[in-house]
């Protein structure tokens, strides 16, 4: 005996996780595991702060130079170094953030297996972790971006004095923050989706057995 198509369609409607519930569960989970969440977020903050600092320091320098002379050899070298720094800081973001998210999801495989025993679909698991990751990613990136910009402005002040505020490229700084937010959110989401999907697809017995 097998299920008829109609029964099957009925079953489809009977298993659900409303968005409001998912957000509630995710927020609660972040709050209760507050310190663990902070540590994960700290990884994101540091990576994004570094990236934002490097990019913003470049923007400020460009703005200051535009008022001065054309580029000399030393300035060109500095620009080249900057590109390297940006590449490296991006790499740090990719490795740091995805590692932080991978760990924070992987250590909860058992929880994922349990949820599946209680009738969660693979997609519920991904959804819950996605929301958590997005919150952590956006909050961490925002803090990181603000710290990075602040540090870059301080560094600019120490180099150029208060003159730096005269030609401060506020628009570019704002764009840098948006960019950093984007990078942080995308990376932390990707870093969380991968293990959550993997665990979601496992038979629950395997997910619950997995020890990290």
């Amino acid at each position: 005996m097998s299920l008829t198509a109609r029964e099957s369609a009925g079953i489809r409607r009977q298993i659900k996780l409303p968005n409001s519930e998912a957000v509630k569960i995710a927020v609660r989970s972040l709050k209760i595991r507050f310190w663990r969440s902070i540590i994960t977020a700290a990884g994101i903050v540091l990576a994004i702060a570094f990236l934002t600092y490097v990019v913003t320091a470049g923007s400020i320098e460009n703005a200051m130079r535009a008022e001065d002379a054309p580029m000399d050899l030393a300035a060109m070298q500095k620009a080249a170094t900057r590109i390297w720094l940006i590449a490296i800081s991006l790499l740090i973001c990719v490795v740091g953030i995805s590692n932080a998210m991978l760990m924070s999801v992987t250590e909860r495989y058992r929880e994922i297996g349990t949820m599946k025993c209680l009738g969660a679909l693979d997609w519920f698991v991904v959804k819950l972790f996605l929301i958590e990751a997005a919150f952590q990613g956006i909050a961490g990136s925002l803090v990181g971006a603000v710290i990075g910009v602040f540090a870059a402005v301080l560094a600019g002040m120490s180099e150029y004095g208060f003159a730096v505020f005269g030609s401060m490229p506020w628009g570019t700084l704002f764009l840098n923050i948006i960019l950093a937010l984007l990078v942080g959110a995308v990376l932390s989401t990707l870093g969380a989706i991968y293990p959550a999907r993997r665990a979601g697809r496992m038979p629950p017995a395997d997910a619950m057995r997995t020890e990290v």
Binding site: M1, S2, I11, I15, K116, C117, G119, L121, D122, P204
Partner: peptide, 16 residues
């Protein structure tokens, strides 16, 4: 019902 024939939804329903 042979549970090897169930899809993800039906299996979740069964467990739930």
């Amino acid at each position: 019902v042979d549970i090897s024939g169930l899809d993800a939804f039906e299996l979740a329903w069964l467990r739930c």
